[in-house]
Computed example of a mutant assay.
Amino acid sequence: MTAWEQFGTITVVSALLLAALQAVTFAVGHRIGRYNVVDVSWGLGFVLVAAVSAVLGDGDPGRRVLLLVLVAVWGLRLSWHMHRKSAGRGEDPRYRELLGRAGGASLGTVARKIFATQGAAQWFVSLPVQLSAVLGPAHGAGRAVMAVGVALWAVGAYFEAVGDRQLRAFKADSANRGRIMDSGLWAWTRHPNYFGDACVWWGLWLVCAGVWPGVVTVASPIAMTYFLVYATGARLLEQTMSRRPGYREYQARTAYFLPRPPRR
């Protein structure tokens, strides 16, 4: 089997498994009456694709294992965090607004706007991982590019994990009720978790880009960044948060996405 035939097998199997995962998640969300359970399956879907790629691919074994480990560490932590965040709570305001603009929460609208969209996004964003599984080893400058990718992944994982932990600790303190989280990483960017997510996927793309033609999958991290900044991430959250007292002031002194020292 040629490398491109392997890639075709990996991408088809990945698409089918992601469709099954989203179908199960949709059924669970419908049963419990809230569809933010889709956030739990977000990281799990990428882990599933990375595992399929590592098993079915015949490319450089070291890079296949590396990508599986990086995606699994990121994805499993994120899914566990989203489970803890959403368990026992109501619907996420982002999804209420999304469905409201789409004309209501009919089953067809929910399936199309939330679950089908997320499944397609998971498949497209994970293309670097899928393609990398069938490529040979990196040499020379390609190894340096891969090393930069791992370092960028580490920066992203730090921002995301630490930012989530800081926010969870802030919310757990009753003295902070009604206040805006503006310390730690949240003083440098209003969305350290989303920024970290973007860095993770640009880093994973660089690991793939160290070997030709991995670089051609650059549209995948671009799409992930678009989702995080404009589609279902920061922009929707800002629309909700801007109604809270003190958030306008927080916006004035803190960077939107890319971190920078806070203004006085």
Rank of each mutant, 00 (worst) to 15 (best):
G184D: 07
A138T: 01
R64Q: 08
V211S: 00
G104E: 07
G100F: 09
R89Q: 12
A15R: 08
F46C: 01
V150M: 05
F170P: 13
G214K: 04
P61A: 11
V49P: 08
M146R: 10
A51G: 12
A219H: 06
A209P: 03
E5D: 09
D92R: 15
V73P: 03
S242I: 09
L135S: 01
W212E: 00
G43F: 14
R165N: 11
A157N: 08
G104Q: 08
A234I: 10
T189K: 08
R89G: 02
R179T: 04
R94H: 12
C208I: 00
A19F: 14
V125C: 06
G142T: 02
H83G: 13
V12K: 11
W42M: 08
A151L: 15
I180E: 07
V162F: 00
F257Y: 08
G149R: 01
T232Y: 03
S53N: 08
A120W: 08
Q118G: 00
V40N: 01
G90L: 06
C199Q: 12
G140D: 00
A175M: 00
A87H: 15
Y230E: 09
R243Q: 10
M181A: 13
V162M: 03
T117Q: 12
G45W: 13
I10A: 07
G140P: 03
L206Y: 03
D60S: 12
I10L: 05
A3H: 09
R77E: 05
S132I: 05
R190Y: 13
V52N: 09
Y158W: 15
H30M: 06
Y95W: 15
A154H: 03
C199A: 15
T232C: 06
V200A: 02
A172K: 08
M181E: 13
G233E: 08
T9N: 07
P137V: 00
W212G: 00
Q122H: 10
T2I: 04
H191C: 12
P128T: 02
D60V: 10
A187L: 02
Y250G: 02
G108L: 09
R34V: 04
M146H: 01
S106E: 11
A121V: 13
V13I: 14
G156N: 07
R253P: 11
M181C: 15
Y226M: 00
A51M: 07
W205P: 02
S79A: 15
L16S: 10
R248M: 01
A151R: 12
S41T: 14
G8Y: 04
C208E: 03
G156F: 04
A51F: 10
A102P: 09
E5Q: 13
S41K: 02
R63C: 01
W186P: 06
M241W: 04
W188E: 06
V52R: 12
V162T: 10
C208T: 11
A255Y: 07
I114G: 02
A234V: 15
R165H: 14
R168E: 13
Q122I: 14
L78N: 09
L204D: 00
A231L: 12
S41Y: 10
L204Y: 00
L56N: 13
A175Q: 05
T2M: 07
A255V: 04
Y230R: 15
L167H: 15
A234T: 14
G45Y: 13
I222M: 14
G62Y: 14
W74C: 05
P213W: 01
G203L: 02
A161L: 11
V145G: 02
K85T: 12
F195W: 15
H139E: 06
V207S: 02
R63S: 07
V49W: 05
D197V: 04
A219N: 02
L44V: 09
